[in-house]
């Protein structure tokens, strides 16, 4: 049974590698606004001049691993795949903690939505698939059978559920404009904020239910509230998708931000 799962996982991983590599290289080539590349994935964690090379390196590495899995019957490419996805999981987790506004960049421009638990869950599933392949030494082209097809379909379905890019692609087909250029009523964003977990967590510490200030920047709408202890509680609502990510920070009365770790931790845990 587990051998069939590993055999079904292999074409999925190869397909994901090729798709990710092509999308990354395409988004490096597209003329993105200065800094837009920085909003795409872990490249934001390296200095600006290394961002394009980092994206290119990542894309080429994915092509290399895809070729390694298909062409070479050797444990090295298989365990390298495990290492790649394990490291990716950690990097995404760290990225979500350090830069809550950037997307995972896994599939280039489409992955501009901020990293959420779904993106991280997807890399965990891919890591598990890679481990299965490595443990069973799966290589070459798999034999086709109904159980193989069922596992393959199930894996694809699971990954699609865990992919926020699907929603973004549909939104793009519907609106034909990036989220930054779409008008979005403030009231609708506010109702989304009020139904979020971050709101429920911080609601008791607010002095008033009405925001003291609100403004929009790119794909985020910000709401500033007066906190009970004289600080400001700032929420940021992402303006795309049905259940958008909501971030929160507490800015002290002296104008200084509460320690980043503390404020981001609160939001990252919901």
């Amino acid at each position: 049974m587990s051998e069939t799962i590993a055999a079904a996982a292999q074409p999925i991983l190869v397909f994901m590698f090729v798709l990710g590599g092509v999308a990354k290289l395409a988004s490096v080539g597209s003329e993105a606004e200065p800094g837009a590349l920085g909003r795409l994935g872990p490249a934001v964690l390296v200095p600006e001049r290394f961002r394009s090379p980092a994206m290119i390196f990542c894309g080429l590495a994915e092509f290399g691993l895809a070729a390694g899995l298909v062409l070479f019957d050797h444990p090295i490419p298989r365990w390298m795949t495990v290492a790649f996805f394990a490291v990716s999981t950690y990097v995404l987790w760290d990225l979500r903690r350090r830069r809550p506004d950037v997307g995972c960049g896994c599939f280039g421009e489409v992955s501009a939505r901020p990293v959420g638990l779904r993106s991280i869950g997807r890399t965990v599933v891919l890591t598990a698939m890679a481990v299965m392949i490595a443990l069973h030494d799966t290589s070459g082209l798999p034999e086709l059978s109904w159980t193989f097809a069922a596992w393959c379909g199930g894996g694809v379905l699971l990954l699609m559920i865990l992919s926020p890019e699907i929603e973004e692609s549909f939104a793009r087909l519907r609106y034909r404009a990036p989220c930054e250029q779409r008008s979005f009523p403030a009231e609708r964003a506010f109702s989304r904020l009020r139904s979020s977990a971050a709101w429920r967590t911080h609601y008791p510490s607010l002095r008033s239910e009405e925001p003291s200030d609100t403004w929009r920047e790119l794909c985020w709408r910000f709401y500033a509230f007066d906190g009970a202890d004289g600080s400001d509680v700032v929420f940021a609502v992402y303006l795309s998708g049905r259940r958008p990510p909501v971030r929160v920070a507490i800015v002290g009365a002296d104008g200084r931000q509460a320690p980043l770790q503390e404020s981001i931790h609160v939001s990252a845990s919901h």
Binding site: E31, A32, E33, E109, R172, R176, A177, E180
Partner: peptide, 11 residues
């Protein structure tokens, strides 16, 4: 404006 299909703001 020209139709934009990109997910991120183009240059």
């Amino acid at each position: 404006p020209p139709a934009a299909y990109g997910g991120v703001q183009s240059k």
